[in-house]
Design a binder for these strands. Structure first.
Lengths: 106, 106
DNA sequence: ACAGTCGTTAACGCTTTCATTAACTATTGC
DNA sequence: GCAATAGTTAATGAAAGCGTTAACGACTGT
């Protein structure tokens, strides 16, 4: 997923809570709705956003196909980490050139 | 700054662009407006959000107090990294307990 | 077949967010 | 003092986001 969808998805507090809950263990849609104190329709749309952002994955349970189990998809978060790392890299360059600037003036 | 303000601030593409631009070198408000292709008032409000989120810092130039120079404030991003790291930690616990589960069944 | 459960989709309203234009403050140079 | 420049604030409008209730589709157990 692109970085924009990733940041937008994680901008919502409820969705971040869902991500953290799923970091502990996979959960059903209804469980997540209860845990986050949101209605089922609201949670359904949050989960769709997280799915589309690549942060979570879903799976129907074979013993009861009504149940939809969601789990965290850590690969979906690499885009976030990459964004931070790139920024850090440029920041380090900036620091290095400033050091050179100081060196040249002493 | 709290995590919510941080994620909200970075949810906007223009603001992320500003952060990346400032990762390379400090810039004036007007420069940022031009570089991002936004009007001065729009950029002014974006910069206020980033300031309040702790991601950037500002400084008036002493030779011309009209000019406001913004620079990146890398400490403001640790909250983001911390959030990811905590999630990663819990994810690892989840993996570990799953390993134990498998061990117990073989 | 039918009632109950799980979850999604539709329709609606409210609130927030973002951009624009116009007006204003502060500072500089002549 | 006056015109020009840098930037912010105010007012307005359009679009997106989120929540709710109601209706719907899919599956299960009896």
């Amino acid at each position: 997923m692109n970085v924009d969808g990733l940041f937008s998805a994680l901008a919502d507090p409820t969705r971040r809570q869902v991500v953290q809950l799923l970091g502990r263990r996979p959960m059903r849609a209804g469980e997540l709705a209860d845990a986050a104190g949101r209605s089922a329709p609201a949670m359904s749309r949050h989960l769709r956003v997280l799915l589309h952002a690549g942060v979570v994955a879903d799976e129907r349970r074979q013993e009861d196909a009504r149940l939809r189990v969601f789990r965290l998809r850590p690969e979906g978060l690499v885009g976030l980490q990459t964004w931070i790392d790139q920024l850090q890299a440029h920041w380090n360059e900036q620091l290095a050139s400033f050091q050179l600037h100081v060196e040249g003036h002493k």
